[in-house]
Design a protein around this nucleic acid. Structure first.
Lengths: 97, 97
DNA sequence: TTCACCAATCGTCTTATTTTAATATGAGTC
DNA sequence: GACTCATATTAAAATAAGACGATTGGTGAA
């Protein structure tokens, strides 16, 4: 993997987290797994949108999914992601405007 | 600041880093400051684009700038940002595809 | 197999982001 | 002031991302 590829890759993954809804998803999944419909309700978003966000996060290796019957449960794949978000708050904690 | 605002704020700052060019900028500025033209050359980008990316990063508190005569030098405002990027690599290091 | 339920995908509309070219500002020199 | 070089700003066009309804797919129950 060239350095350019690595950079594109990292940007791609950052982008996955760089959306309010997806940050909320990760926050909600911080300590438990949830089904798509549970999240659809609790974050008040259409099922379609929710599914797309979840799929994106999964594709970028942020989430893991598990099917149980007709439901699909998602959870955070790596707790380090939560650490990353904390670090974000720490760095950009005091808003400029 | 409500929790929703905090989340929007964090997403906003993550978005600032979630672009290949801006990641490169931060990487290049990791250990030194550089003028706009130096970066324009070394990253092979138009002056206008570079200026806009730099301004975005500055607006999000990621960079700091200093004018010296007709030139403007940029540097990373907070070394923690570099830590953040390292953590990114660590988490998303092994690409899925 | 048919139905009901949950999730994923598709098509489209809307909105946001990025790039480019053109123009403007600002500093230093003559 | 006029001129040059370095940055910044603006406006337009190109591209990417997001939302939502409708459709499709998969699962289990009757």
């Amino acid at each position: 993997m060239t350095i350019e590829e690595k950079i594109r890759m990292t940007a791609r993954c950052l982008k996955a987290l760089a959306h309010p809804t997806r940050l909320q998803i990760v926050a909600v999944l911080a300590d438990k797994e949830m089904s798509v419909q549970q999240m659809t309700q609790s974050l008040n978003l259409s099922q379609s949108s929710m599914s797309q966000h979840l799929n994106l996060l999964k594709d970028r290796n942020a989430l893991h999914s598990r099917r149980e019957g007709s439901q699909v449960f998602y959870r955070v794949r790596d707790k380090k992601i939560l650490k990353l978000i904390d670090l974000m708050h720490e760095i950009f904690g005091s808003p400029k405007r």
